[in-house]
Amino acid sequence: MAERPQGLHRVGDRLVLTVCILLSIWMMTWDESDRVRRGAAWLHAVVTPIEWTNRFVEDLLELERENERLRARVAALELDLAHLERGRLRLEELETRAGFYERTRGRLAPGEVLELVVSRIPVQAKIKTFGADSLEVWMPVITENGLAGRVRQVLDRDLALVQLLTEEDSRISVRVARTNVTGLLRHDGRRFFVDHVPQGDPVRVGDAVVTSGLGGTVPEGLAVGRVTRVRSSPSELFQEIEVESAVRFSALRRVYVVTRSGPWYAGFEGTVSSVPDSQRAAPRDTSAGARR
């Protein structure tokens, strides 16, 4: 490449010098307030991208650490899942050998609450379902947080009145998941209790309470709530067990009716997104065999 002529070099040097000097003097002619304002604005413009870059790099590093943690967690959960799957297969095998039949889970029909009947607290709900299944009396009604009630009266094939667990007449057979102690769930207008649990039966605070399936109308294993208080007295025949439900009865909007045929979600998989995966069970062929 040819070198620039010396004269051109000198002109370039002087041009740069002149421009820099003129710019400097131009800035010095500003009022002090202008200098402060513009100086602060320029500094902000210079520093902000550096701060962004710094924050971006920090976020990236944090993301990498978080990713590593999640990978480790996923690996642990995969192991747990494999272990549980082996357990489930073993259980099914044992049940089959013992002569038990496939447990019918029922099928969920999504619906929405049209009205709530309130007597201090909501005790009944009028619901409308979407789907081909016809409603029948005593079909369980659940939410993503657990059992909410049962169909009390069918008004139409997709319209029904639901008796919520909070109605004082409602009685549902439940069991403590950890120990299989069974009792009857009732609501006294303020709190849930599990009645008819003899003194000495193992129940403790924090135990999960699920449906027992003994009543014949509600499938076994639906979540009801957790034990919040246990009172044992030698002078009493039964323990007083208080339970808290995770269902927010005053905010019931979307519900699911457990119809009597098929596995969960058969027929409308993918159309209901608000139900957590924990409630999704693998579809099973329930055509063979009767209920336990």
């Binding site: 131009w26 010095m28 402060v36 513009r38 100086g39």
Partner: peptide, 18 residues
């Protein structure tokens, strides 16, 4: 850049260093 940090003398630093 130095002037931005002490904007009361913005331009003066630039002139001297130029």
């Amino acid at each position: 850049l130095q002037g931005m940090l002490a904007p009361e003398t913005l331009g003066l630093d630039a002139l001297a260093k130029t």
